[in-house]
Amino acid sequence: MPLSHDLRRVRAIIWKDLTTERRSKAGFNAVAFLGVLILLLFGFALGPDAEALREAATGALWLAILFSGVLAFNRSYQLELDGAALEPLLLYPAPRWTIFAGKFAANLLFVLLVEVIVVPVAIILFQVKSLVGWAPAMGVMLLGTIGFVALGTFYASMASRSRAREVLLPLLLFPMLVPVLLASAEATSSLLAGNPMQDAGAWVKLLATFDVIFVVASFFAFDHVIEV
């Protein structure tokens, strides 16, 4: 079967997931609201000290994305489980990587849309200023999000077979996310502090390496974790 047919299936899954999500709306609203709420809570906890807020900004932002993202990953498979649609999805005559690729791309778009709301809120709330412009920081955000979503999509598929999936997913995912979270937060902090050539560069390379490893490993392992 040509690759173009498989890519058509990937696009079909993206279309189906995003259309379903757009129709229900509740999912996106809840996830975005949770992200904003976490930022607000961090803001309240840190107090009015502008310097303290700026220093904590990237950590708070990534944690907000992480916690809200977990909700998104769980929802992604809940769409299949609600109507017992996971089994028919697995029985289409397609290699299983197409399912992972479709879910990964749909989740990536979803989380990036959440970031479109959460990031400006973080910038305003934590009074963040960038000394080197916003583009490099957005690049780091994208790299961090790719690694995060790859792992989240993979572990959500693994947890989807369990009745305790809401609890299981964070337990599986969070320890694995430590390198991505660390590299993303440090790279973003370095960039915002105007230090793009030293610390930031090293963190960005590390982040890119993790992304490649996680994405490739998830593609290959997906077939085994989704199998019953």
């Binding site: 129709r23 609600d82 109507g83 649609a85 996971l86 028919p88």
Partner: peptide
């Protein structure tokens, strides 16, 4: 199968 396996919002 027993369950239709459809997407309710489509």
């Amino acid at each position: 199968a027993h369950a239709p396996g459809l997407y309710d919002d489509l």
